[in-house]
Design a protein around this nucleic acid. Sequence first.
RNA 1: CGGGCCAUAGUGUAGUGGUAGCACGAGUCCUUCGGGAGGAUUUAGCCCCGGUUCAAAUCCGGGUGGCCCGACCA
Length: 423
Amino acid sequence: MLQSELFGKTLRESPKDEVAKNADLLIRGGFVAKEIAGIYSFLPLGLRVLNKIGNIIRHELNETLAAQEILMPALHPIENYEKTGRDKIDVLFHTELASGGRLVLGQSHEEIVVPLARRFVSSYRDLPLGLYQIQTKFRNELRAKSGLLRGREFIMKDLYSFHADEKDFEKYYEQAKIAYKNIFAKVGLGDRTYLTFASGGTFSKYSHEFQTLTDAGEDTIYLCEKCEIGINNEIIGEQKKCPQCGAAKEKLAQKKAIEVGNIFPLKTRFSDAFGLSYTDEEGKKHPVIMGCYGLGLGRVMGAIVEVHNDKNGIIWPESVAPYKVHLIELRTKNLELSDDPVPGVAGKLYNDLLAKGVEVLYDDRGDKTAGEKFADADLIGIPWRVVVSEKTLSQRMVELKARNSGNVILVPAQNIYQRITNP
RNA sequence: CGGGCCAUAGUGUAGUGGUAGCACGAGUCCUUCGGGAGGAUUUAGCCCCGGUUCAAAUCCGGGUGGCCCGACCA
């Protein structure tokens, strides 16, 4: 992508109405733009990050959980919610059809996916089944806050699993923990995201959250260093100890964290409500056992920014960075463009990297000073910065800088690919 | 939903009753250009409604919106 043509611009100053670091950096870097509180547009850079996160999730759910991706509607008939008693949930947005039918905007999709599954699931042979989607959710939060961390409209992955019995469900649930662990590791949050015990509500003793440690988080968890798990405030309040090893509350470390995902057993709560059942080998009918697994993409993106930044801007983990390489040309002073070797070398490197499948943002802007380009590169936070200038070309080299370590080396242009693929 | 702070140009700000200013951005020109360059010139603004006053960005009332704290968060 030529940066001269990129939609969105960096801002020199922090927006005055954003305190949250994630919103500040994402807005200044040109990743997102705020529409109203808790509702953001994703610009080209931000969308690329969001899609990277989404594809990591897809890969993991497809491979580890054999789940299948679908896409369900955002508009839901309220009748389905009346069947489950969730029509009274206060975060629901309500609307209606021109013909008068009442609708709600989806905040979760049990009321859609269960009737959907009922159309096709009738035998034990149809189970187990995992269905997921990545889709916009709507929650009429009383207070949106913390930038992308708590929005009123947000992209979420929601997975629903269907099982013949408890045992099969539990097996899948444990696999889901592994899949989630893999996902958070891949997006660069692995070292500070903890499986956390939370209340199971009415249908189970526990559910589990995935909590990323950050002071920007709105939850308080208790960390058991020994078990490497967290315990949610509501659980610790009841039990005063680690549910896994029994360590006393006083031995646990109190931390601020943001809930980036959750998984929980639904048992038969929704299958009962919609009559979702199957017939076993002996012709007997049983309710389907369900689990539900959520993961907020925007929230993950915000959490990554909260965790990976310095005073100059974002430091994207390579797996989710909008581009792998930020190629910067610094044109030579006192030379006509046609006499300047810099754009030619930079342009060739750009095309060579593209041909090898490397994602490159090419800062070809001719009217920006070096300082401005470097400041933008730091802010945007692409992992590898490559500078082509009169100075580097005088040594027949280009400069390679790692955003995370700050290490700078001079290498021949043709060695860049090898350097960034085997650093 | 309770409480607090706030609302001036695309962004950040100054202006506390008397002609709305500055910086950045954006446009044009010149000189610059390896860490947010300099000069010239142009562009663009008082959230909305009502009230007080000769006169309101400024004071008062009511909206709307934003941020923060709390409550809430299947």
